[in-house]
Design a protein around this nucleic acid. Sequence first.
DNA 1: CTGAAAGCGCTTACAG
DNA 2: CTGAAAGCGCTTACAG
Lengths: 339, 339
Amino acid sequence: MTYEDIARAAGVSTATVSRVLTGSGAVSAARAKRVMDAVEQLSYRSSRPARTLRRQRADTIGLIVSDVEYPFVASMARAVEQAAAERGFALTVCNTDEDLERERTYVDLMLEEKVAGVIAAPATEDSPNLTPLLEAGTPVVTVDRLIADRRADAVLLDNAIATRLLVDDLLAHGHRSFVAVLGTTTATPSRERLAAMRAALASTSGTTLTVAASGLRETVGVQHTLETIGASVLRLTASMRERPTAFVCANAIMLTSLMETFQRAGIRVPDDAAVVGFDDMPGFSLFAAPVTVVAQPVRLIGRSAVDLLFDHMHNPTRERRVVRVAPELILRRSCGHGG
Amino acid sequence: MTYEDIARAAGVSTATVSRVLTGSGAVSAARAKRVMDAVEQLSYRSSRPARTLRRQRADTIGLIVSDVEYPFVASMARAVEQAAAERGFALTVCNTDEDLERERTYVDLMLEEKVAGVIAAPATEDSPNLTPLLEAGTPVVTVDRLIADRRADAVLLDNAIATRLLVDDLLAHGHRSFVAVLGTTTATPSRERLAAMRAALASTSGTTLTVAASGLRETVGVQHTLETIGASVLRLTASMRERPTAFVCANAIMLTSLMETFQRAGIRVPDDAAVVGFDDMPGFSLFAAPVTVVAQPVRLIGRSAVDLLFDHMHNPTRERRVVRVAPELILRRSCGHGG
DNA sequence: CTGAAAGCGCTTACAG
DNA sequence: CTGAAAGCGCTTACAG
């Protein structure tokens, strides 16, 4: 079933069939109707690969993330897919596990697929992994993270404000000794949040900040993170003369891991230690110690990324844009009593 | 940068380039090396759409699910993507929200993309939505669910055993009045679990079973489910003369919603009501009432589905297979005390 | 407004 | 083992 068949049935040329079906180029109403009838009659289904080959651009967008299994990422992927589908675009999902080599491989895949655009959360800010896409003129928007190359759009949390919200609340509860539980230190959130924590603590004397960061290769998936992060943080802080009392976690899974470790170790939250973090998660309000977090507008991030992508497609020369979205502090009880 | 360029640089024909690059057909070692060198030199990147058009089959598999945002689905999608990537296949993800019309549209998309296979969790058992794929000879494996058409492979939980595990534990804790909190009643899990609950309760006198099911169109996404399910179950049971004491939830999000509702309503778990469910979720062990669940081997389900898909591709005539995976009961405290 | 024809970049019988 | 050539199903200048 091809244009050939429809053209024959409708008594027109394949060029006319194409014009009718893509809505490009004017066609007389009568012939258009004949084409549509034939399409209906023969229950024609188009071939996307043929179209892609000819136009050198697929109606597909690529999403390159560390791991869709993370709640934050899953929600974002959902929003992205929905926005893409509304425009008739398919979504190809790639999980890198923060591995630079796999990231590169997936970029190759995107190029080979001729995707119309890529939304990515790159593992580091300065790797040249996304460069081939940019060079090829493929629109790229990074989410949650930034890259050095200024040709990519970006949408991410206002980390300075978000961190401030968390730290100020902790300070108000009397905490002075902080631990930053970070994931990929090479990525934007860690860098910005750490800087913001230092800034926030600098203005209060007698405060300390310890960094508990996992290396790039250690954060492999939700399950592994859940099993290892908490223990490694506990090990780190156990060796300190004075045990820190405030733990700020980079994401909901790390936070959960730490809480589980504390529970097993008999460390009570918030009595012995406050634990707060970035990203909300279903169930956080039901914890024995309901979790105080700064939530990100995930759906908005996903939708904005797609908007930027399509905007770029239609206006390739416009200046690059970086969109910052506002955090929302959700005060529960893990930050301390009486809050 | 096409085969033409490589052929010229290597002094061979495009046919030879193809044979070297796809590993099909014998080529002399010397010529093969010249081709590989040229590929390297020119940093050639292949065109997947061209290959797809010619072969009438993309190295892509499609995943059609209700919503990747659900923890269970996200984990499965992760496993599927990984298994696909290992074989050089891309993954296209589609969210239907259990909407039959969108399901149909996505099936069209899969056909238009010429995907090599589809993994789907169809909204109902008897809709003909997947038929066009089957008719076209595209391998299909359903996950978590079954369809009437016996041409599709399937991998799903042994719902009978899983349900039994949950109900027996509840009965042992003295519960007699049960509520089944279900999602899409038209899908396999609801049907099988409900049947299993009835069977399990039939053998114990004095038991009752109430069904709290959301319609097909009501379950739209994680956020909405979270906000509505708990309240609707509470409303339903509040009107009963005798309040049920055991709630069995179809998934982690419904369970969370119900728990939140109970918390707000001052209903204590497990003192006033036991709440258990299907699927584990990070954080369930940290709830004020740690949640007893029957967990599914999600990664295994995802990987098995991909295995079945590829097996079917290489052996199109083999009999259809239905794989049942074993549940794991994780006993915590929401089922009752002293367990 | 319309059609003939070229061409996107591969793969694969076919002939040698 | 190797190459010439056809063809997968579209889109798009080009000419009218």
